[in-house]
Nucleic acid binder design. Structure first.
Lengths: 221, 221
DNA sequence: CTAGCGGGGATAATCGATTATTGCTAGCGT
DNA sequence: ACGCTAGCAATAATCGATTATCCCCGCTAG
């Protein structure tokens, strides 16, 4: 039969994770086990397990004997995460470009196509971009780095990405003037033509960093 | 004030973590909640919490409905982690060297001094290096990167380090011919003289990687 | 003799209740 | 009036027991 077999624990975890990422809770706001348990119809134990998992992912913070809260997020935090991504992802992109095969090229093209054809906003009223676009955006960036051949680095990418999504949700970092579409197109093309150095530079620029900011980060703003 | 106030949960977690890192459990071996609970005199819930925390740290793996096991570790895994470290840490070292102040220099010197004066092995019979040396080794590498000014990257370093320690424990990766002492000394000196590029190269070499291995990643000259 | 099919034991997951800790507040003493 | 301390309510942490799931093994049919 339709063995949907999704354990309560997983359901609660995914629901809570999605809620945090969607911004249903403000940074610093306590995640009260009681409310979550009753609102989801599960016991405290599974809520606790969900929270522990979120902590492992960086989507919740634990204050011993004082419960769990949503971690800090905002402009400053986003800057830190962007710098971290700019420190790691260019190297991964070079590795991916050097190692990627035809399968990889195909995935990159497919991911870019979906991203380019997915509307950023569901409708005019939404302040934040749509889930579909966020997924496509994630998939495209993931595809670019996919062929780096190192799952530890890919895990790190995923970790940075979720942290980045949370912080962007609570920051005004949406530079409205930027032409993200053109930047993604350029990234795709440089990847497919195997121009590692140029692609790495384009990625740093895409992250809103200048190369100077990074490698020789002498001065701080 | 005998207020030692270490909650059972934390005690169990630390104990289990230490046991895994010391190699008391073989990779792939199930971590049985029952045994751990009775051996530590706590309930299943706190063992479960400890295991969830370990999962978040990468020191345990969860097989749904089949419990928890120690993750794979060995030569191959160690190589992957070393490559990841070689992809990330040189950039962090450059940032640290660019941004570090006198306080940082002092910490680096202190950490190197302790490392250099700590015997690697407690006694001749031990197959693995001592806890004191492992701590000093960790502290030295951490100190080198400490001033990079990005806590997200530092968290990533810590994550890589623990994974690295676990894998090294189960691999024969101890290249006996290597002169780790000289390599650490060189790293300290290049850091203190602020030679970022040379230090980054020395770090890659210290990790047992050749620059070519990284698909010429991290080259920023 | 082999492949498929339950039965039974082990163990992971979940629950409801109990215990410990925290932050607040009212009361006391100076 | 002010600061300090003991009591109180809220809630985090822990526990013991119950329920659900998986895996192994013996059985039976072909």
């Amino acid at each position: 039969m339709t063995d949907n077999a999704v354990p309560p624990s997983t359901r609660a975890y995914e629901s809570l994770r999605s809620a945090v990422l969607h911004g249903d809770f403000r940074p610093g706001q306590p995640l009260k086990p009681q409310e979550l348990a009753s609102s989801q119809g599960v016991s405290l134990a599974v809520v606790r397990e969900s929270l522990l998992r979120l902590v492992g992912e960086g989507l919740a913070e634990r204050l011993p004997n004082r419960g769990f809260v949503v971690p800090e997020a905002g402009d400053a935090r986003w800057q830190v995460i962007a710098e971290a991504r700019a420190a790691v992802e260019p190297t991964m992109l070079r590795m991916s470009i050097a190692r990627g095969d035809l399968e990889w090229e195909t995935r990159v093209r497919a991911a870019h196509h979906r991203l380019a054809r997915t509307p950023t906003y569901d409708n005019e009223t939404d302040a934040h971009y749509s889930d579909a676009w966020a997924t496509a955006h994630h998939e495209f960036h993931r595809a670019l780095l996919d062929a780096c051949g190192n799952d530890v680095l890919l895990d790190t990418f995923e970790r940075f990405w979720t942290a980045s999504e949370l912080s962007r949700r609570w920051s005004a970092a949406e530079s409205p003037g930027r032409d993200a579409v053109a930047e993604h197109l350029r990234l795709e093309q440089l990847a497919l033509t195997r121009e590692g150095d140029a692609a790495a530079e384009a990625l740093v620029a895409h992250l809103g960093m200048t190369a100077a900011n990074l490698a020789k980060a002498g001065r701080k703003s």
